[in-house]
């Protein structure tokens, strides 16, 4: 469903963040993208919805070539790609409900959004999503009154209300405590399964990734070094991605009880 061909990005400073990436994500697959800081994970998912403009190669979502779109067409396609951010990136001074509804901005006109008069259907969907993530009672709270985990749930609702085909998830757990991290990862994966969504999840916590996803891709210095099932992540593979280190204690059997100790 999502296909990247020779996708590359060179920043103005000359840093080559991505070197001719080829990648294909089939429908409904949840994929984790792991790799050290600076490997180009963030750049990769930002190149897909063109928050970062790729400098070469192409990206296709279904049959649409994202990299060739005009800004108008790009806005239309961005609606099909929900994004979840590391520091939640909620609009802090707006209410939870406004934050969720902001996911519909690509669908409603300017004045409707400016006057906060969204179609009733969108409002109902927003309430359903908030109920699904357990935040219905918080709907009229301001986003900066919420805890980290709650904020990330709002971020998830905002991405899902777009009615996307693909989720782009950038380090969803990086600013959360271990327990909340797992809850959020579980929530994202459950929701993807319910809705048959494909997802690319950037994550630096290898054990957490192994626990939830179906496929792991390892990125190092802008190239794909590993692509396979979470079970096949061996110490050798991790050494290849991250460099020399004792990896035995990091990799856990995919098992919740043991996983808790890894944190």
């Amino acid at each position: 469903m999502l296909r990247l061909e020779n996708l590359s990005k060179t920043y103005k400073t000359g840093d080559q963040a991505l070197k001719e990436i080829d990648l294909e994500v089939p429908e409904g697959q949840v994929m984790a993208l792991i790799g050290p800081s600076g490997a180009g994970k963030s750049t990769l998912i930002r190149c897909i919805n063109r928050l970062v403009e790729p400098s070469g190669g192409g990206a296709w979502l279904k049959d649409v070539e994202l990299t060739k779109l005009s800004s108008r067409g790009l806005r239309r396609e961005r609606r099909r790609m929900g994004m979840i951010f590391q520091e939640y990136a909620l609009i802090e001074r707006l209410t939870v409900m406004e934050n969720v509804l902001s996911g519909r901005l690509g669908y409603v006109g300017f004045w409707r959004s400016f006057l906060r008069r969204y179609p009733q259907q969108d409002i109902d969907t927003a309430f359903r999503l908030l109920d699904r993530v357990g935040l219905l009672s918080m709907a009229d709270k301001r986003a900066d009154e919420l805890s980290g985990g709650q904020r990330q749930r709002v971020g998830i609702c905002r991405a899902l209300i777009q009615d996307p085909d693909l989720l782009l998830v950038d380090e969803p757990t990086a600013s959360l405590d271990p327990k909340t991290s797992r809850q959020i990862m579980r929530l994202i994966c459950e929701l993807c399964e319910e809705r048959q969504l494909a997802a690319i999840i950037n994550i630096h916590d290898v054990a957490l990734a192994q626990m939830f996803v179906q496929r792991v891709v390892g990125l190092r210095l802008g190239t794909i070094e590993f692509d396979g099932a979470p079970g096949s992540l061996t110490p050798d593979v991790l050494t290849m991605i991250y460099g020399e280190e004792d990896w035995e204690s990091t990799i856990r059997p995919v098992d919740d009880d043991h996983g808790a100790a890894a944190e």
């Binding site: 209410t95 409900m97 406004e98 906060r116 969204y118 009733q120 409002i123 109902d124 927003a126 309430f127 359903r128 219905l136 709907a139 009229d140």
Partner: peptide
């Protein structure tokens, strides 16, 4: 809440 209008507080 389903079906009710929502207004910014």
């Amino acid at each position: 809440v389903l079906g009710t209008r929502w207004r910014k507080p």
